[in-house]
């Protein structure tokens, strides 16, 4: 998920935060402008709350299907609290005279014509599958397990 990491950093850097990130930084590129001039009105149902409750780390780990050892919980908890804290700074931005937007502006509509193209390198795709037995990808038993 390399593209994810660089994006996160891009956004953070754009806000001129100086976070102590618990991970190594990667290349930074100029970030497209966020703010649109033509604000449109809409009912945006998701409101940013003014104070975020501290995250419940064991529960988060469970929803992400990750098992954390107690010492890992101890290690991550303050880091995550810090991240939430950074967002607390965002809450300070004055939005009173700003119309809500649902997404960032993007250049043009990035749509695709409905024309089929077959991805040729199937071998590479299948090579990355941990357990493959032609023609199926094999996974552990899932039924009656929840």
């Amino acid at each position: 998920m390399a593209m994810g990491s660089s994006r996160a950093l891009l956004i953070l850097s754009n806000f001129k935060f100086k976070p102590t990130l618990p991970f190594a930084s990667s290349s930074l590129k100029p970030f497209p402008p966020f703010i649109r001039n033509n604000f449109r009105t809409r009912n945006f149902s998701a409101k940013t709350s003014s104070s975020l409750p501290p995250p419940d780390l064991p529960r988060l780990a469970e929803t992400a299907r990750i098992s954390l050892a107690p010492n890992e919980v101890e290690e991550f908890a303050p880091k995550i609290r810090r991240v939430v804290g950074w967002f607390g700074q965002l809450q300070a931005v004055d939005l009173d005279n700003v119309e809500p937007a649902i997404r960032a502006d993007t250049e043009g509509d990035n749509l695709r014509e409905d024309v089929p193209e077959t991805f040729e390198n199937k071998e590479a795709l299948m090579a990355s599958v941990p357990s493959y037995k032609e023609p199926y990808i094999k996974v552990p038993k899932v039924l009656n397990k929840e």
Binding site: R36, A64, A104
Partner: peptide, 22 residues
């Protein structure tokens, strides 16, 4: 910064951050 944008950035950063710290 719009409300929606703010919300989106937060969620995006958090989600991406979570990818990294795992």
């Amino acid at each position: 910064m719009t409300v929606g944008r703010l919300f989106e950035c937060q969620s995006f950063i958090l989600s991406q951050f979570s990818l990294l710290c795992s």
